[in-house]
Design a binder for these strands. Structure first.
Length: 196
DNA sequence: GAGAAGATCTCCT
DNA sequence: GGAGATCTTCTCA
């Protein structure tokens, strides 16, 4: 499996399609302590003015302006005073879109992840990264990474074969969004223990 | 400049 | 199954 970053053309497409195609790709986080990697197993698509649940629904603000820029950029935000969430921006400049990475299956650097996110005593291995706040904590993703280019090798990027056969995909409505939109824009790999 | 809501998680009953 | 924790960003004055 290649560890070459996915090119910008991968991201600057329809957001729904990118959300599906990101399943099975490898998220790579490099820190002073070492490298951590994980397979993406769950995503959600967020769009622009037609999507009430999206930060970009009311147009570009200081926070959401990254969603209107080029694709392939890390969009990180802070919610509930506790959790960071990691997104990859999509669509061409001028069109809003982002894909929330909700869960990964840890592959490498698991020791570091456990240090970043100590687990309660009797928890299962899957609890390490099976949720957006959890994986951000485990991989030490903070607001400092907001705006990171995911198409070049750096502190944070996504790799994988662009044309690799996608795993079996299941679909459902998005989780935790209140504003209307029961749109089926959550995607996850079937039969995987690490989905939230 | 104040007030409110939020793409969550953990622990408790 | 439900409340509480805690801070960034947005909205409106």
């Amino acid at each position: 499996m290649g560890h070459r970053p996915l090119p910008r053309t991968f991201y600057e497409r329809n957001t729904i399609q990118v959300a599906k195609d990101l399943l099975g790709k490898i998220l790579i986080r490099r820190t002073a302590e070492g490298q951590m990697t994980g397979r993406i197993v769950e995503t959600e698509a967020y769009r622009g003015s037609d999507d009430p649940a999206s930060h970009a629904y009311r147009g570009a603000t200081q926070r959401s302006r990254l969603m209107f820029g080029r694709g392939g950029i890390a969009y990180v935000y802070y919610v509930y005073g506790f959790h960071h969430c990691l997104n990859a921006t999509t669509e061409s400049p001028g069109t809003a879109g982002a894909v929330l990475i909700r869960a990964i299956e840890p592959l490498g650097g698991i020791k570091n992840m456990r240090l970043n996110r100590p687990l309660p005593r009797h928890s299962r291995a899957e609890d390490l990264t099976n949720g957006p706040g959890k994986l951000a904590k485990a991989m030490n993703v903070t607001l400092k990474l907001n705006g990171t280019d995911l198409t070049t090798i750096g502190a944070l990027y996504i790799a994988g074969r662009e044309s690799a056969t996608p795993p079996p995909i299941s679909t459902s409505t998005r989780v935790g969004v209140k504003k209307g939109s029961r749109r089926p824009w959550r995607f996850f790999t079937r039969d995987n223990e690490f989905v939230s």
